[in-house]
Amino acid sequence: MNARLLVRALRDPGTVAQFGAGQWNALIAMARAERLIGTLALRIGDRPVPDAARPILADARLDAEREARQALWEADRAEAALKPLGVRVVLLKGTAYAAAGLKAGEGRFIGDLDILVPRDCMEAVEKHLMLAGWEWVKSDSYDDAYYRQWMHELPPMIHQERDRMIDVHHTILPLTARQRPDAGAMIADAISITDGLHILSPEDRVCHAVAHLLADGDLAGGLRNLWDVHCLLAEADPAALEARAARHGLSPHVRQARRMADALYGAGRERLTLWDRIVLARLLARNGWGKETRKGLRFAFYLRSHWLRMPPTMLARHLFTKWRKGHRPA
């Protein structure tokens, strides 16, 4: 069994009416593991479900409401902390979707607060966040130096009282990645949603979600990220998106994400390439107990995630340093 069961239920929630107990158990375990249980619960809505499934879905809806409430409060706190600077603060990912009431935000699990600010303001932003109670999570000097030199964000910070993390980005991909998205243009074209907070334009939202899914990382949690892309695509203008993707150097990624979103969550009309199918197999690698499957394939994508981020000699040095510190891939 793979996660197609979950994908089908998200695409067409009416199909759960025919599910037996075994399928329900698998669906719930997979949805929790992929952090899509809140989204699933909202998709199923008031449709008839077995008595034992109803409270599980109701709990998931309540958890999602709390997630959104907490995320918006964190955004509000960050805005207050950064107000004196007068810089443009752009909310990214889950918090942005929740703040703007987008479909991608409905029921979505929201972990950290992600914000995008102009690169030349990073130092001032860091200082103001620390004044407002955020502090460093990582104490390891290699990790800290690594973030500052090569990453697209500051090392993660956590708020000392509220225990919530903030990721401060100055662009959307690591500086070592092959693509160089135009972060300045993203910030310049961001849309104001409150007094001090912005979100990306509809097309940039797609570009960011796609970059996050396909040009960075090992595709863990990819079903959720692809669901984001699927929802965000509906709000983007196709011609404007093509132009924007070209500007960010992400055209092939955006096209591939569109094909895959169509294959899993849409009508399934687009032709898939062999590479699309391999990525889809990775996304669906989970069984009815919620456990990841296809260890070899997952490990290959883990290696690829590093390959994408770094030139080979730098990668070798990085992996050796991490290995000496005792890090082993899951």
């Binding site: 107990a21 075994g22 158990n25 719930i28 077995p50 034992a52 499934a53 409270p55 599980i56 919620g290």
Partner: peptide
Amino acid sequence: APADGIADFTVRLE
């Protein structure tokens, strides 16, 4: 026995 076989939680010992 549980009424309809749908569990609130899955536990795995791996």
